[in-house]
């Protein structure tokens, strides 16, 4: 938890420092910009798609063009982390993802980088899941699973018994498919983000929001089903005296929404923070223009953070699943109103 907190702080501080430096750097680097221009021209001009700062006056267009030779690290980092309609394949060029003209409900459903990553994760998940499922179907109860089926089975069994059963308790079977799917989906998204040319879909707040909404809907549905409308409304009063209802009911209603909100922000911030740190560490070498710094600081620390990210990928997938199970368990529990205490302990 402390490591995560530190990495969050770093994620906030490092871009600040970098962007401060980059201002100085951008100004001083202009003298030697022509030398670099040939090198950087080969690379796709990323920032153009991100958005050239709107406040820039046309008169300064030439200046910004010159500055493009030395891209601002902050912009580059954000370009890598944010969603795009362009899929960059760095040294070779970029793929313009297809735009979908149809706008159902007035929303633009064009394919973006993160949509591609979500689909990729879904494809991987389907391939793995169906392979394992098929190998399990052909297995008799006397045989033990082998290879990938064994590994996946261990994870599923862990989620089924240690996450679902221990948190939800009676009637946990209905929620196992969702919990398992969400765990593997987040895990695969996180891992794809660590592969070169991949992007972290779970580092996009829209994706995590969607996943948290699934948890929210399932939690509410489970609560209604377990307690009925009357029980649900009683739950909102937290069992207090009627004179306190004017305070308790709003708090309880807000509490229903803070749970998915916490899920959303936790996953999104963790995944984004790790990537920003890795990019920032690499950019230190470019800013200082030193091979020594690159070898002594950037590469080792980036590798360290990368390994940490590998761990965080599993950890956050587990945490999301665990908290989803916990919220469902709290919503379906008939008695005991200690969800605030428990939730507080997990934050």
């Amino acid at each position: 938890m402390r490591v995560k907190a530190i990495s969050r702080i770093l994620a906030l501080v490092v871009p600040v420092l970098l962007s401060l430096n980059s201002h100085v750097f951008a100004v001083t680097a202009q003298a030697e910009a022509p030398v670099k221009e040939s090198a950087t021209a080969a690379a796709p001009a990323g920032p153009a798609t991100v958005a050239a700062p709107e406040g820039v006056a046309p008169a300064e267009a030439t200046a910004t063009h010159e500055a493009e030779g030395a891209e601002k690290p902050g912009e580059v980092i954000m370009h890598h982390i944010l969603d795009n309609k362009v899929y960059p394949i760095e040294p070779f060029g970029e793929i313009h993802l297809p735009e979908i003209a149809a706008k159902p409900f007035g929303i633009d459903i064009s394919v973006t980088k993160h949509v591609v990553m979500v689909w990729l994760a879904c494809a991987v998940l389907l391939v793995v899941g169906l392979t394992v499922g098929a190998s399990f179907k052909s297995l008799s109860s006397k045989e033990s699973p082998k290879g990938m089926a064994n590994a996946i089975e261990a994870l599923i069994d862990f989620i089924r018994t240690d996450v679902a059963k221990s948190n939800i308790g009676h009637g946990y079977e209905k929620f196992v498919p969702f919990l398992v799917t969400v765990f593997f989906f987040i895990l695969i998204c996180n891992l794809i983000g660590l592969i070169p040319y991949g992007a972290t879909a779970t580092g996009n707040i829209n994706v995590t929001l969607t996943l948290a909404l699934f948890t929210f809907v399932i939690t509410q549905a489970a609560a209604f089903k377990a307690q009925g409308v009357k029980g649900y409304l009683q739950h909102l009063t937290a069992g207090t005296h009627w004179s306190l209802w004017i305070i308790m009911v709003p708090i309880e209603i807000i509490g229903q929404f803070t749970k998915p909100f916490a899920l959303t922000i936790r996953l999104f911030a963790n995944m984004t923070a790790g990537h920003i740190i890795i990019y920032s560490l690499i950019f230190i070498a470019f800013i200082l223009k030193s091979y020594v710094v690159a070898m002594a600081v950037s590469v080792p620390f980036a590798i360290f953070i990368y390994l940490l990210e590998l761990f965080v990928a599993f950890l956050q997938a587990f945490v999301f699943t665990m908290l989803s199970a916990l919220f469902i368990g709290l919503a379906t529990a008939h008695e005991g109103h200690d969800d605030h205490a428990v939730e507080g302990a997990h934050h």
Partner: peptide
């Protein structure tokens, strides 16, 4: 917010 992404993810 990116409704398209939410749509496709969901």
């Amino acid at each position: 917010p990116n409704p398209g992404l939410i749509f496709w993810t969901a």
